[in-house]
Design a protein around this nucleic acid. Structure first.
Lengths: 294, 294
DNA sequence: CAGGTTCTGAAATTTCTGATACAGCTTTTC
DNA sequence: GAAAAGCTGTATCAGAAATTTCAGAACCTG
């Protein structure tokens, strides 16, 4: 499952060899029925091809076998192959409106930052769009229950986010801690996690087995697991009560955690607001201590 | 065409009640498995639903019958019906150019999350606008100098960002470490920081004196200090060679670090790209170790 | 903690789709 | 104008996909 570690070799950004283009070029060499199929496909590209063979054939006014011959001729192993290609092309096209809109910029370094920012902003929008309000609210409610203990944890990179969350929640409310991902560090602590506990896990692709193990153990003992992950969902999702996915793809060899941070900060804000009566004195107390000690 | 929206309500009358929207609203009433299905669909909307039932079930981590129950519950006659609806919706959306620009429904849902995200996005834009490209480039060049040692540090909250940066740079290049903000923890290490060293400090409002002290000491010993801070500039700015400010105000009792994260990730991306020849083998080696150990 | 309800997945069942063989028709070629 | 070659559709099949059944598991509820 461990897909190659990095997305190092980036495909040339310029020309996506669309299937539509190829069909236009080869149009001459098609037989009459193939032409009818091609015309139908091009006129409603690519949606016409997403129906069944029979539907496509009827709409094109030809027979099913002719449709099959058509897609075979295009080099696909079969109709499902053909459809899969169409879907992937469509998805790629729909998901990267930013890539094309990359505006011309001034110097050399600016594009890097500007386009990176653009991609991240796109991620944030997509993340928000795909979060169910009810789910978000449910998590807020859960984290606002001051009787529960909350444990934050995360992987190699996302561990930092877990710490970030913990450092805020720790001030807003009590019973908050951070658990290192390495099993050796939590084996003795996890036994105390039970029905009243909440585990908030951060885990994105190249999902880390130790984090999964921690959550599974916790879940088995009755804890409520909240997962912040990528759209492909960490395996932790199987034991999680609540899942908040964030988009993470950026023009980089690394994934972006901005969406996760956004969710984290939004949760902190919401919980702080909801617990304000108790949070305010706590925050003031922390502030007082800081001033005294320095 | 009934245009009931003659009033000043912001809700645009055109919005087709997207299936995604409905799913978000009904999310609460779903059973656990149905939620899994809903999450998968929303996170990859609508492409996740265009595969086969079996594929969808596997990816969602549930069984095929559960998927069927899910689509039935949404009011479709069966899976093919459901897919047909998705295709039609997709087609309609793709054909209207503006439709996909911002389908965020701020009708009722999660004003908390949506408006928070909007503020954060505003911060990111403002941050990028106010960064001098030359300054950004200079920092990239500095961090790409593999002969230098790089030390990351930060305060209460920003310390997590410093860790995040460190965990990435550590893989891209050598001579990278993280220094805790508390003086007791760095007193003995800082004496080794000298002319060839770079200190990257994260510090925003309620600037932390210990972090400032660390940077001042380092600067005094000839180290180059890079500062990521807020627009009001941490006192560290006085000893810093490069300063990258990020906007941090959000509708919350807390400041948002999203701008700092953006800068961090952009730096990681740029340095990784510049050091690619040496970074790639390092990343591959790390990947190999992970696989062996697990 | 029993009894009832809801939820879930393995397996059996049904439906439907994509694929193929083959024969008729059309076009080409000499 | 006849034979060959190419194209197309009908009929049929194999296999995959969706659906239903059913029993067990999980979860309430009193």
């Amino acid at each position: 499952m461990n897909q190659s570690g990095m997305r190092g070799d980036r495909r040339s950004p310029k020309d996506p060899p669309s299937l539509a283009e190829r069909i236009r070029l080869e149009m001459e060499s098609f037989t009459p029925s193939e032409k009818r199929a091609a015309h139908l496909l091009l006129s409603h590209y690519p949606f016409a091809g997403l129906d069944t063979v029979a539907e496509f054939a009827t709409r094109a006014g030809i027979s099913a076998p002719s449709v099959l011959r058509f897609v075979t001729r295009l080099g696909f192993g079969g109709f499902p192959d053909f459809q899969k290609h169409l879907r992937e092309e469509l998805e790629a096209q729909l998901l990267s409106p930013l890539a094309k809109a990359s505006p011309s910029d001034k110097s050399q370094g600016a594009p890097a930052l500007a386009s990176f920012a653009e991609a991240v902003i796109g991620n944030l929008k997509a993340t928000v769009d795909n979060i169910a309000p009810a789910e978000f609210d449910a998590v807020v409610t859960l984290l606002s229950d001051s009787r529960r203990h909350i444990h934050f944890t995360g992987g190699r990179f996302t561990g930092a986010l877990a710490r970030y969350a913990e450092s805020h929640f720790r001030i807003v409310r009590s019973h908050v801690d951070f658990i290192e991902g390495q099993p050796a560090l939590w084996r003795d602590r996890v036994i105390e996690i039970g029905r009243k506990d909440v585990v908030v896990a951060f885990d994105i692709r190249r999902y880390q087995e130790d984090v999964t193990a921690l959550c599974e153990t916790a879940a088995k003992q009755g804890a409520t697991v909240v997962l912040l992950t990528d759209p492909w969902l960490s395996p932790i999702a199987r034991v999680a009560r609540h899942v908040l996915p964030a988009h993470i793809i950026a023009p980089s060899n690394w994934d972006s955690s901005a969406g996760l941070l956004l969710l984290t900060e939004a949760l902190v804000a919401a919980v702080t607001k909801r617990l304000w009566d108790t949070a305010k004195p706590r925050m003031e107390a922390v502030e007082r201590l800081r001033n005294e000690n320095s």
